[in-house]
């Protein structure tokens, strides 16, 4: 949630809360002086409409672009957080797998990482290397 959306959110809540309290007081007063069909004052109406509009704006401003952390860290890449600059995920399958490729997620990992498919010698060599470092 960006700062702008947070500010608009709290301002809208304040406006709606104030309009609610004003409306409540107005109706209590109307009951006391026996007004049969009280018409809400214009300022309360405008305040509640403005509150609703600001809330809708804040809800849309709160939408952030999707970001991903790469699973395989590459020393050469300077970007730690990756993004496609989109608010939603693409649904066509050829595009949906782009994110997996970007962050280094193996879409077929359920099969590829089964013990029978892992190159044990390579893994042991990698482990030895990591120990020596």
């Amino acid at each position: 949630m960006s700062l702008l959306s947070t500010v608009t959110f709290y301002v809208s809540l304040l406006l709606i809360g104030h309009a609610g309290f004003s409306s409540f007081e107005f109706h209590q007063l109307a009951k006391k002086i026996n007004i049969s069909d009280p018409q809400l004052p214009r300022d309360i109406k405008y305040e509640s409409y403005l509150g609703l509009i600001l809330f809708i704006i804040s809800a849309f401003l709160a939408f952030t672009k999707l970001t991903y952390l790469p699973l395989r860290y590459d020393n050469q890449s300077t970007k730690q957080v990756l993004s496609q600059g989109q608010y939603l995920k693409e649904t066509p399958f050829n595009k949906a797998t782009n994110v997996d490729n970007m962050i280094g997620n193996d879409a077929n990992g359920e099969v590829n990482f089964m013990t029978s498919f892992i190159d044990i010698s390579a893994k042991r060599a990698q482990f030895k290397k990591s120990l020596s470092n």
Partner: peptide, 30 residues
């Protein structure tokens, strides 16, 4: 991709839930 469709719908519904509940409160105030 069904999983992406579900996630997108979820974001849309969350947005609508917030807006519509506040709309209900404003209608009550008015």
């Amino acid at each position: 991709s069904q999983s992406n469709i579900i996630e997108n719908k979820k974001r849309y519904v969350t947005l609508l839930d917030k807006i519509i509940l506040i709309n209900g409160i404003v209608s009550g105030i008015l």
